[in-house]
């Protein structure tokens, strides 16, 4: 299959179950909501070393937030519910409470499973904290030096999907980066999905374990490194000299499928030779995303010119 003369590999992306929370941060203006969200999602590219994956989902207009202020929606993923709870406490405590004018709300009100980071973080108030129930939800008022930080007590937990991906194979680094940027732009602000790597793009795709170093959880994906073409069992065609990967985490399979469809279509630009995906033969996780069937609606099947 080809899309805009770009070969779409007959393979699938393999993803695994994660636990997810949606955090809504509001502030006096969009700038300060974003400042908090950027810190909240810092150092959260991969669970391999960061213990969680997080990124900004989208900006929220004031009519979309509980307190009618500008806000940012963040998705945070961890491997299990316990880990998710710890990350919420650490990150909200250190990045939202500390940020001027912010308040922090749950973005998954319908979720049955709940974590209570607000209940734990309230003790920062050293006994001066107070709570309010608005609607069916409890909020903690933690006194801080610019007034009060308002934290929702409980946050919903969703059964999310982590590790969705597609890999862009390009003729050179410039065109490959441009295609990846186009993918990120196409996916940006889509509901229910995030791209946790810097700017939404990963260059250091990894394989499980290491050929040389015992105990290493992950090491470079040598099969996709152009500089190693003659030194390893390379997966790269001769005319590919640069590879970038888009990794996606979503609240459900459909969110990832929708984002992959848009992202892959946007990446099929001049200079791109092929799009493929990372999988482990179906052994890593139960969520499989076949590239060609995802693209079915968008594909322009035909012979390569």
């Amino acid at each position: 299959m080809y899309v805009n003369s770009v070969f779409i590999d007959d393979t699938f992306a393999e993803a695994f179950p994660m636990r997810a929370a949606r955090i809504v941060v509001t502030a006096v203006n969009a700038r300060w909501a974003r400042e908090a969200a950027l810190k909240l999602t810092g150092f959260a590219t991969s669970v391999i070393a960061c213990k969680c994956e997080a990124a900004i989902e989208r900006e929220l207009e004031s009519h979309e937030t509980p307190d009618a202020r500008p806000g940012i929606s963040v998705l945070l993923f961890a491997m299990d519910t316990e880990g998710l709870g710890k990350r919420l406490v650490e990150r909200i405590g250190q990045t939202v409470i500390t940020c001027p004018t912010t308040s922090c709300f749950d973005g998954l009100p319908g979720a049955e499973q709940r974590l209570t980071p607000g209940k734990l973080l309230r003790v920062f108030g050293d006994g001066f904290q107070g709570s309010k129930v608005v609607g069916n939800d409890r909020f903690w008022r933690v006194p801080v030096m610019d007034g009060e930080c308002l934290l929702q007590e409980s946050f919903g937990v969703a059964k999310g999907v982590g590790g969705g991906n597609f890999i862009i194979l390009g003729a050179d680094s410039r065109s490959t980066l441009a295609a990846a940027e186009a993918s990120v732009a196409a996916i940006a602000n889509m509901e229910g999905v995030i791209l946790p790597f810097p700017g939404g793009i990963a260059r250091s795709g990894s394989k499980v374990g290491s050929r040389r170093y015992k105990g290493l959880a992950a090491s470079t994906n040598d099969a996709f490194c152009p500089t190693l073409r003659p030194l390893t069992a390379s997966s790269l065609p001769d005319d590919v000299d640069s590879v970038l990967e888009i990794v996606l985490d979503g609240l459900d399979e459909e969110s990832i499928r929708r984002a992959m469809r848009a992202g892959i279509a946007a990446a099929c630009l001049p200079g791109i030779r092929a799009i493929t995906a990372g999988n482990y033969g179906g052994k890593l996780g139960p969520h499989h995303f076949p590239l060609r069937s995802i693209l079915d609606e968008k594909a322009e099947a035909g012979a390569r010119p």
Partner: peptide
């Protein structure tokens, strides 16, 4: 001040 819980 501007109490956030009143706004909410």
């Amino acid at each position: 001040y501007e109490p956030p819980h009143v706004r909410l």
